[in-house]
Simulated scan of single mutants.
Amino acid sequence: MSGTPVVERTGSTGLIVDGLVKEYRVGGGLFGRGRDVVQAVSDVSLAIPGGQTFGLVGESGCGKSSLGRSVARLQPSDGGSIRLGDDDVTAVSGERLRRLRRRVQFVFQDPYASLNPRKSVRATLTEPLVIHGLHRGSRDRRVEELLDQVGLNPAHADRFPHEFSGGQRQRLGIARALAVEPEVIALDEPVSALDVSVQAGVLNLLDDLQRDLGLTYLFIAHDLSVVRHLSDRVGVMYLGKLVEEAPVDELYERPLHPYTQALLSAIPVPDPRAERARERIVLTGDVPSPVSPPSGCRFRTRCWKATEICAEVVPELAEPDLLDPAPTHRVACHHPAERDVL
């Protein structure tokens, strides 16, 4: 296991992921059963206290989306557990799984691809209410409430997705997730396809909804500036592994893992003079294949601090043995150290 996840109990239901594993078979074979196995999520543990946001960042292909889809049970996991309150998300099926889907919802990266172009907004938002038997006799009113809740005009309920802008379509995706009154929402790159000004509006909406409804978010993104705006804790993934996790300000101001330091050094600085003067950490080489990841530390093939032990021993995700270590700051590195990168 990757260490015990840190969680603080609050009044609302939280989410605990413990030793999650998700693999995909590739390389052809009968009925898609390939001989090679992609280790998309490899023994990941994290916890999100109720009413808070856990930001998950990393390069494309690191396993962020696979973890999010497993949390929402859009796909089965291959090991570990996901607990929502007293319920094990990975163990339920049938009617219990249908009821669980009310509690955990998912917002996709591409809002247009996730909306049926042949269905009106009213039909799209009514569908989950019908599936779960909610708001019988008042579904039209519920649709209007949802549109108003996400900042859209209720009078446009009979329009179709192509009649809305990209930012408005993402608001529709959020409204559909809210329709069944969930406790947890996994958001997979929800603003990456939007203009910066539109991103700000959607992020502020998510912030307001969390405050008003007590929602718990798993916020998946590659833009570290966006993650900092919304998150309480941040986890950094690399090649299926969680390599660092800490409270948001602690992680951005005191990154301990070389990979986190490299990611943070790539964030643009608004001051041109500071931008020219600061240090940039440029990673060399390509990301290794998830089919055959490196032994020991998976980041060692691109790390400037790698030593012999990095090739032989998998580093445990744990609080580092440093002078005055910050509480609940976990890092999976044999040589963790502070480095000024901003």
Score class of each variant (00 low, 15 high):
residue 8 E to Y: 06
residue 8 E to Q: 13
residue 13 T to E: 12
residue 18 D to S: 14
residue 19 G to W: 01
residue 22 K to V: 10
residue 32 G to Y: 05
residue 36 D to C: 08
residue 39 Q to E: 13
residue 39 Q to P: 04
residue 39 Q to Y: 14
residue 42 S to D: 15
residue 43 D to S: 10
residue 43 D to N: 14
residue 45 S to F: 00
residue 53 T to N: 04
residue 59 E to P: 11
residue 65 S to Q: 01
residue 71 V to T: 07
residue 72 A to F: 09
residue 73 R to H: 14
residue 73 R to D: 09
residue 74 L to E: 10
residue 74 L to S: 08
residue 79 G to N: 09
residue 81 S to V: 13
residue 82 I to G: 03
residue 88 D to W: 03
residue 105 Q to L: 06
residue 118 R to P: 05
residue 132 H to Y: 13
residue 133 G to R: 13
residue 142 R to N: 13
residue 145 E to A: 13
residue 149 Q to C: 15
residue 150 V to Y: 09
residue 152 L to E: 12
residue 154 P to D: 12
residue 166 G to S: 10
residue 166 G to A: 12
residue 170 Q to K: 04
residue 171 R to D: 07
residue 173 G to W: 04
residue 179 A to W: 11
residue 183 E to T: 03
residue 190 P to N: 06
residue 200 A to Y: 05
residue 203 L to G: 02
residue 214 G to I: 10
residue 221 A to M: 09
residue 230 L to K: 02
residue 230 L to Q: 05
residue 249 D to H: 11
residue 253 E to W: 00
residue 255 P to Q: 11
residue 272 P to E: 07
residue 273 R to W: 07
residue 278 R to D: 10
residue 295 S to P: 06
residue 295 S to Q: 11
residue 297 C to H: 07
residue 302 R to D: 03
residue 302 R to H: 03
residue 302 R to L: 05
residue 303 C to K: 04
residue 306 A to Q: 06
residue 309 I to M: 08
residue 332 A to R: 02
